[in-house]
Write a protein that binds this DNA or RNA. Structure first.
Lengths: 221, 221
DNA sequence: AGATGTGAATGAGTTCACAGCT
DNA sequence: AGCTGTGAACTCATTCACATCT
């Protein structure tokens, strides 16, 4: 029984992202009442690679049945456990402007794993507003809010110039990981993992692949 | 003179993302009054790899001066040109809920390359609202709005179930590329590049790297 | 038979190291 | 001397192909 030791540092980001995809695909199958699926099936349905699915899963053990495939529900449970989505992750949003408010509403729906439990801002105008199930508090009270809500993940949705400072505040307040939507790099503390999410880079990438505009593209075909 | 033929399909996404990063880093240097920089310098300052910077740039030609480094301003100009950021890209947002409105405000600031010129929604409640410089129109008028504004890139910020349909509408209306923020896969038309942006996956990834909670982590040290 | 799990083969991406120019 | 531009070496990732199990 070759039970794999899945050290967290051994799993590549690429694999990890795919595991998330697999999980979503499996949930869709589950919703459709499918109880078993082979790697080929899954690959065909969701434009994935069968060999890769097997390789990715095999890193964490052998959950499949040879000659048959994978049982959907146990596999979902296993992936949930691997990805730590089998527990609740309270999230606090720092910076409740347009983006922060949108993220507060948007990020909560993930089969109950993530719940945005609080939001803070340093603009008195925004403090006190009700957004997606909580009242916005002042950033001055960050530490108390984190303590009271048990927030585990901080989401930075502040302007670029305020990102580092607010990251530091989040760390001091005791969150265990930070997702940074500010368009700047933040210097992380080793103990508190940081992930930068750059929304603009996607637009820039897309612009590169845009078919070059013909001289008179108005004559649409 | 080994002028490189930079076919668009030859450049990997990884390289492309780095080019965007280089460009930003260079702009910061420019703002600081730096006129020349070596790959080592750039690497040190922004946590990059010097060899990789040179390799990446070399794909598009030789812009450096041996023994010296790169002239900041011409290099910025060159990268702008490579990434097609030297022209204006009008953007239309489909789905003006929380996320769409936030993106409309957020995506516009990129040194003038991208400008969100319109937003549509099929909820009459939202039609007519003024957001970030334009009035929200009804999705029924998408084609006219795209024609009138010359929108080139469509941003999908609609619920998952409406993503495909609205992608198709955008294609029919004549946009040349689509950025999809809906948490679902969309089947693209080959002529209109599509890029999926999955906001949740970042949270999921972060959750994986979260330090496991000790039994009583409240005694912060 | 049919699908998993996995070494081996291939391919992609990064780093090294240095020739060649300033 | 110093740094770019680039082949060669290396590492990482994906795909192939098949032994193994149901």
């Amino acid at each position: 029984m070759p039970a794999k030791p899945p050290l967290h540092t051994d799993v590549s980001t690429l694999t990890l992202n795919r595991l998330c995809l697999y999980l979503r695909s499996l949930r869709r199958l589950q919703a459709d009442g499918v109880t078993r699926v082979s790697s080929q099936d899954l690959a065909r349905r969701f434009n994935l690679s069968a060999a890769q699915i097997r390789k990715d899963l095999a890193q964490f053990g052998a959950f499949g049945i040879r000659g048959v495939g994978y049982d959907v529900i146990p596999l979902i449970a296993r992936l949930d456990s691997i990805l730590r989505l089998d527990r609740r992750h309270p999230v606090i949003v720092v910076g409740m402007g347009n983006l922060g408010s949108a993220l507060a509403c948007y990020l909560g729906f993930n089969h109950g794993s993530f719940e945005v439990v609080a939001g803070v801002d340093n603009d008195p105008e925004r403090v006190g507003r009700e957004v997606g199930g909580f009242k916005v508090e002042h950033t001055d009270h960050l530490e108390r809010v984190v303590r009271e809500t048990g927030a585990e993940i901080g989401v930075l949705a502040v302007p670029a110039h305020a990102a580092q400072q607010n990251y530091d505040l989040l760390v001091a307040a005791g969150v265990r990981g930070v997702l940074n939507f500010a368009p700047t790099r933040v210097q992380p503390v080793p103990a508190v993992p940081l992930k930068d999410v750059d929304l603009r880079i996607h637009l820039e990438e897309l612009a590169y692949f845009l078919p070059p505009s013909g001289p008179e593209a108005a004559t649409g075909g």
